[in-house]
């Protein structure tokens, strides 16, 4: 079970059970929908963007523990950040979960998002972890068509 505990860390299980910012966001001026056809995960991200800063953010949807916890932790991490800061966080997160950063990858700058470091041992679950982030990017870029991980 040890590698499973690496994947399903306590903070992930907690955010899966009690996701933060898990609601529709009234007054959002950016929104996008993401879909993972492989497992049916669906997420909608709402953003209130003001002066290039994510003033508020929330999400709705259904999915596995990894995608739900990822969306929850993402919203908590990017709230108050500028677009560029959120983008930088996404790149660091992406590097960590895909293992591109190598074994020596320093997740220090990622804060609680470091809980997803175990995902790199489960390549087919990378899409679950990154779906909310791709959806957030689509929202920030004002894209209309739903995001798909395929």
């Amino acid at each position: 079970m040890s590698d499973l505990r690496d994947l399903y860390q306590e903070v992930i299980l907690d955010h899966n059970k009690a996701p933060r910012n898990f609601h529709r966001l009234e007054g959002a001026n950016r929104t996008a929908e993401g879909h993972n056809p492989l497992c049916g995960d669906q997420v909608r991200v709402y953003v209130l963007l003001a002066d290039d800063r994510i003033g508020n953010i929330a999400f709705q949807g259904s999915g596995c523990a990894i995608s739900k916890a990822s969306a929850s932790l993402m919203t908590a991490s990017v709230k108050g950040k500028t677009r560029a800061e959120a983008e930088a966080l996404f790149h660091a997160f992406h590097k960590m979960v895909t293992g591109e950063g190598g074994a020596a990858f320093d997740a220090g700058g990622l804060g609680k998002l470091a809980a997803f470091s175990g995902v790199r041992e489960f390549p087919i679950r990378v899409k679950c972890a990154t779906l909310p982030w791709h959806t957030l990017r689509a929202a920030l870029e004002g894209r209309q068509e739903p995001v798909s991980t395929e």
Binding site: M1, D3, L4, L7, Y8, K17, C39, D41, G63, C64, A65, I66, K68, F122, R125, C128
Partner: peptide, 14 residues
């Protein structure tokens, strides 16, 4: 109940 099928699949796989 309370667990998505995808998570069930990953754990069973291991």
């Amino acid at each position: 109940e309370g667990v998505h099928a995808h998570d069930v699949g990953t754990i069973l796989d291991r």
